[in-house]
Design a protein around this nucleic acid. Structure first.
Length: 509
DNA sequence: TTTTGAGTTGTTCGA
DNA sequence: GTCGAACAACTCAAA
């Protein structure tokens, strides 16, 4: 018996210790670090945490310094406020909540690990250069301290480090990039957790969302509320509506800024309220009834726009300097025009250039935090070619005013416009604001909406008020130079000057 | 290895 | 009024 007892006793002790350890470990929570993946569905980090079977602590950390040179601008902060609020509400429906912290990300994660007794942190990857550096450092520090730190892909169909051409280099032209991507498999999205999330025994303290002061103190966001519904529910509703109402006609209607022909998913995508896998699946499910994939030419064109989003991430990942420097280094010494006192830049920003389509776009941007893509090309071309101001001024303004401001997309868009980036617009492509207006806003409805002082002009004059006969202007209540500015530059002269400058610089050497 | 054709979004000019 | 050509240089990928 003694021998047996001696034999049994240590086993008992061991199993008690094991039980104790197992109990502690099985209740050690998992932190889910939310970033630009503010959704419950198709969220691999959240799913992995739930599948781990431990309490889940959803966390958001506000860390401006961790964003490198690109802390969220004014409009995206507005969005972020409402999106976080929405995520918290959605989590509460599952018996959980969003813990908000503010400070340096690594420090805050460590503090929350200790406060909750968690032993793991899961998150979904971001691809901006400064974020990659930061997250790598955080991951290795956590792992060195014995924590589990895992990252996942929620944001892209094809992560940049997985895509290369046959020479093993990054793609620099869209069409071969996208052709290549279309041969690769796309993962199915996963559904949101159905059951309550296992909660920790004690919730750590959370910062109040309002205390982050993401909302403006002066009410420039008045019109934002009618235009947008931030959050996962709003994103999914938008996707559903687009797939049903507009996608089939997307190829043509997307170019008409007065019509709801675009998806308007860009801000939702930026914050990860919906992901590209879900978009892919939504297009596919339309295709299931159509019997083909993609189900229409509109759907094919729409997916290629999703492809441009992927391409933008690809380029930013492989060419990390491009947010501030031209990809093509012949542009380093481009002869940008002088702008004494910043008067021309200010006229552009405020929608006071005297070119109606340009001004309508800039005012739509200011009022709603968004601008139609066709018009973005026009205002971009105008800034860079007509005014010959550095594209980085445009990028900075967009960064602050767009609700969908995204480093990858913004960088690609502006470098493309300026002709200094990948697959760029040729130097001789100078958008003519009058022609573009006539072509894509033929009735002038878009201009009427955003430049109300021209609203009474007939369609034939609304894109070119300075050419309208005096009596037409008078009847419409327009006094050029008073109620609406005269053009700040002459189109033909500005075009010539741009062609001369861009022709010289575009050339090698 | 070298060559070749093609490449998101346009405008103007001259036949 | 319509239509095609011209407007660089460079990258990619197929041949």
């Amino acid at each position: 018996m003694v021998a047996r007892g001696n034999f049994r006793a240590p086993r008992l002790q061991i199993s008690r210790a094991l039980l104790c350890w197992a109990h502690r470990m099985s209740s050690a929570p998992t932190l889910v670090w939310f970033r630009q993946d503010l959704r419950l569905a198709d969220n691999p980090a959240l799913k992995a945490a739930v599948d781990r079977g431990r309490p889940v602590v959803p966390v958001y950390i506000h860390d401006d310094d961790g964003e490198g040179d690109w802390p969220a601008g004014g409009a995206t902060r507005w969005w972020l406020h409402h999106s976080l609020k929405s995520l918290d509400a959605d989590l509460r429906k599952l018996g959980s909540r969003l813990v908000i912290a503010t400070g340096e990300s690594g420090t805050e994660l460590t503090r929350l690990l200790s406060a909750t007794g968690a032993d793991a942190v899961y998150w979904n990857r971001r691809y901006e250069p400064a974020i990659i550096t930061r997250d790598k450092a955080i991951k290795s520090a956590l792992q060195a301290d014995g924590f589990e730190a895992k990252s996942f892909n929620s944001a892209l169909l094809f992560e940049p480090h997985t895509v290369q051409n046959k020479q093993g280099n990054p793609f620099q032209v869209f069409t071969p990039f996208w052709k290549h991507c279309l041969t690769l498999p796309v993962a199915e999205p996963t559904p949101a957790p159905k059951n309550a999330l296992p909660a920790p025994s004690d919730w750590p303290a959370s910062v109040e969302l309002d205390s982050l002061k993401f909302l403006p103190t002066i009410p420039w966001d008045r019109d934002f509320y009618d235009a947008w519904q931030p959050g996962e529910a709003g994103a999914l509703a938008r996707l559903k509506e687009f797939a049903r109402e507009a996608m089939a006609d997307y190829a043509d209607e997307r170019n008409l800024p007065a019509k709801p022909g675009t998806s308007r998913l860009s801000p939702h995508l930026h914050f990860g309220e919906v992901g590209p896998r879900q978009i892919w699946a939504a297009v596919k499910s339309v295709g299931a009834s159509a019997g083909t994939f993609p189900p229409s030419n509109g759907a094919r064109v729409f997916l290629s726009e999703v492809g441009w989003r992927e391409f933008a991430h690809h380029l930013l990942f492989h060419f990390p300097k491009t947010p501030t420097e031209p990809l093509r280094d012949t542009f380093a010494d481009f002869p940008w025009a002088d702008d004494p006192g910043g008067a021309r830049l200010r006229a552009w920003q405020r929608g006071q250039t005297g070119y109606p389509i340009v001004d309508a776009g800039m005012r739509e941007l200011w009022a709603t935090g968004w601008m139609h893509n066709r018009v973005r090309m026009n205002v971009g071309s105008f800034l860079v070619k007509h005014l010959r101001l550095n594209w980085t001024h445009g990028a900075a303004w967009f960064w602050d005013t767009l609700v969908d401001a995204d480093l990858a997309q913004n960088t690609l868009g502006w470098q493309w416009t300026a002709g200094c980036g990948a697959d760029a617009a040729p130097y001789f492509r100078v958008f003519n604001p009058m022609l573009q207006g006539a072509k894509f806003d033929p009735d002038g409805d878009y201009v009427r909406r955003w430049v109300p002082e021209l609203a009474k002009l007939p369609a034939e004059h609304i894109q070119v008020p300075w050419e309208a006969p005096a009596e037409v202007l008078e009847r419409a209540g327009v006094k050029l130079g008073e109620t609406y500015p005269k053009p700040i530059v002459d189109h033909a002269k500005a075009r010539e000057a741009a062609l001369a400058a861009f022709k010289q610089v575009g050339k090698d050497g």
